[in-house]
Design a protein around this nucleic acid. Structure first.
Length: 355
DNA sequence: CTCGCTAACGTTGACTACCA
DNA sequence: TGGTAGTCAACGTTAGCGAG
């Protein structure tokens, strides 16, 4: 674990790593609440290392010229893939929009549906523990003071292992994504359709029950004038609307600059008539594709007897909700995932109807 | 703290079901 | 047949959450 503090050594390493194809990178930030600035950059080029000995720790605290060198030679370079967890955070200190070819493991993890990767959250810690099968990862140093020097042994240990874990998590995520998002061009639409049919049969009843419980809970909370319960919170919001002509006139006379795109609904298009092709109107067309299930819908179940909202048993309703929520979430994520795959596959394979 | 994501809900238009 | 109400999917907006 080379811990580099000398400017020339750091510069030499940056030059060396500028030749890499892929780097696993993490940063530590000093004083992130009040005066956030880079403290440490951890970079790893060899994902096979499990010990942390291959992780380079670059001490860049209050040495902006070194950070700039790192940005210019590595972050901006589109030929080097940079892998980070929650990249948008680190990137704020490493080149912002100029950073190119970034892979974010948080985004990768979020892309994987819950039924394939059922996790309580997508923290790096959780990913390490479940994907790499490591019982406990000590993250207490994360909240430590990275503005102090010298750094403690514990801090350096934590910093070097983060890059190692990151590389391992990244590899696992790649494997999972590869499996659950096959090439749309070679998807088997029949098999996907069958699977969809099967899952929908389980999902439909649960989904409608979830919707019903929520609806009844909402009505009951409104009737009982409750804003909070142990199961749901009820909040309100207000949308403001004004007459378009009046608003347009007012902004004109008051000289307020209001400029934003307006959706041309079918109704407005009708009223505009020929004027829609007027050269001063630069109409932007946005195409969207819709997937509709061709599977026979069963009849809507007969109306159930629902108690008066004011006399609903909120505990019973809430407990039922809690009971079916986990299963529904898994099925819902699978339904969404299947739909996405079918849609992509149909677009690519240019097919008409499938079940 | 900042940024991006998500849940919740509203709007729109294509479509269906039902009725007189 | 035409009118109307309901369903569904796509998209927009907003508040609040959660990543480090």
């Amino acid at each position: 674990m080379p811990y580099l503090t000398v400017a020339n050594e750091i510069k030499a390493l940056i030059a060396k790593f500028a030749q890499a194809r892929i780097l696993w990178i993490d940063t530590e930030i000093a004083d992130y609440k009040f005066n956030p600035r880079l403290s440490l950059i951890q970079a790893l080029a060899d994902p096979r290392d499990l010990t942390g000995d291959a992780t380079f720790l670059l001490d860049v605290l209050d040495k902006p010229e070194l950070a700039t060198a790192f940005i210019n030679l590595i972050m901006v370079n589109p030929n080097i893939e940079k892998v980070m967890h929650n990249a948008s955070y680190d990137i704020r200190f490493l080149g912002n929009d100029d950073a190119k070819n970034i892979t974010c493991t948080l985004q990768m993890a979020r892309k994987i549906p819950a039924y394939i990767l059922p996790l309580r959250n997508r923290q790096l810690k959780t990913l390490i523990e479940t994907l790499c099968n490591i019982a406990y990862v000590d993250k207490t140093e994360q909240g430590g003071d990275w503005g102090k020097r010298p750094l403690t042994e514990k801090q350096l240990e934590y910093a070097k292992m983060d890059a190692v874990y990151l590389a391992r998590v990244h590899r696992h995520l790649l494997e999972i994504i590869d499996k659950c998002y096959p090439d749309p061009a070679t998807e088997n639409l029949t098999a996907l359709g069958k699977q969809y049919q099967k899952i929908e049969a389980q999902w439909k009843p649960l989904d409608s029950e979830i919707a019903e419980v929520k609806e009844r809970f909402k009505a009951a909370m409104l009737a009982k004038k409750l804003k909070d319960s142990s199961y749901f919170e009820l909040s309100s919001s207000i949308t403001m609307k004004v007459d378009f002509l009046t608003l347009a006139n007012l902004t004109q006379t008051e000289g307020i600059e209001l400029n934003f795109p307006v959706t041309l609904t079918k109704e407005i298009q009708k009223q505009l008539g020929q004027l829609i092709s007027h050269p001063s109107l630069q109409v932007e067309d946005i195409a969207s594709w819709r997937l509709t299930s061709n599977i026979q819908q069963w009849r809507k179940s007969t109306k159930k007897i629902v108690p008066e909202p004011a006399s609903e048993d909120l505990i019973a309703l809430g407990e039922r909700y809690k009971e079916i929520l986990p299963e529904w979430k898994l099925l819902d994520s699978e339904i969404e995932h299947l739909k996405e795959r079918v849609k992509k596959a149909m677009l690519v394979q240019n097919q008409g109807n499938t079940p």
